[in-house]
Design a protein around this nucleic acid. Sequence first.
DNA 1: TCGGATT
Length: 409
Amino acid sequence: MHSAGSAFSPRSLRAPSAAGLKTHRHVRVCLPFSKPVRNRWEGRMQVIAAMETQLSNGPTCNNTAHGSNTINNCSSPIDSGNTEDSKTNLIVNYLPQSMTQEELKSLFGSIGEIESCKLVRDKITGQSLGYGFVNYVEPKDAEKAINTLNGLRLQTKTIKVSYARPSSASIRDANLYVSGLPKSMTQKELEQLFSQYGRIITSRILVDQVTGMSRGVGFIRFDKRIEAEEAIKGLNGQKPPAATEPITVKFANNPSQKTNQAILSQLYHSPNRRYPAPLAQQAQRFRLDNLLNMAYGVKSRFPPMTIDGMTSLAGINIPGHTGTGWCIFVYNLAPDADESILWQMFGPFGAVTNVKVIRDFNTNKCKGFGFVTMTNYDEAAMAIASLNGYRLGDRVLQVSFKTNKMHKA
DNA sequence: TCGGATT
């Protein structure tokens, strides 16, 4: 966030460092004084100022890292001896979702002449996938771009600029999703665990945005797909050293899938939707109950605009409320229930952002319950009031806001 | 009978 009247904050730039890559994350920018260089900085600042003004603070979107440097990359003799790697082609990761190819070119063009520039987009939706490629004419400019733009803060993102690996089929689908990690495990320990299977390109442990604590899940991108396959064979279901629970290792979802799902969900809920869901008419029947509920003040009990402030400032717990919406517990689902039934049941009531059927790890059958996240309180309340007691097949569902208490004896 | 977590 920047103050009014100064769209550009110098602290969001990393200063160029004589030492090179890694030492200047918190160093203030010092403007060089020679005229051509100074103009470059000014040009870059204008671009960034324009972007920071133009790009609203929207929700953070998925990015994909395909680069060539791990975070604690120590340039090894093996790497530097590789003459096949391009010295002009860069991959830029963690771009703000709304940044266009033109803005990318403008930003990197302030360093030197660009041979080509490509922002990678989702094939179907055209949405940015948050990364792109910049190929310079001169290797010197590529190096300079890494030194001056890697780590640049744009919006809520810190961009990563590194040499791109040569495009190849063998490096595709080499990204792993890891869950069940001990909360105490560090990124370094995660890399140590996986490095026995190959060269790690990127690694990450996701953290809770409020507490900063590990969420026990993360990503490992290997250089080669076969390395990732071997890591799954070797580590999935295994206990890391000193861990009490086994970890799950599988191929990561494509980040564009979630975007597509969200878009489909939005289409589904658009006012112009022509074809109602199979259960919509049945759900409609319950809206009378909803009116009664509203008359009893269900909606006004938690004025939506104040919920976030209440929970964040006072730290109080409201059943079902999470940072991203209202979580609903659905009980008495059949063993063969799947996510689509939850979409069908809850979709007609409003914005559904997530559904989940909880399955047994071994049998993959539904354990009898699931969760639905809805954005708006009143729609979630309506769904609960309507669907609690709903007869699905030969089962009567129980639907309520999710609580924290465990019901196992 | 109240999870998993998808950068």
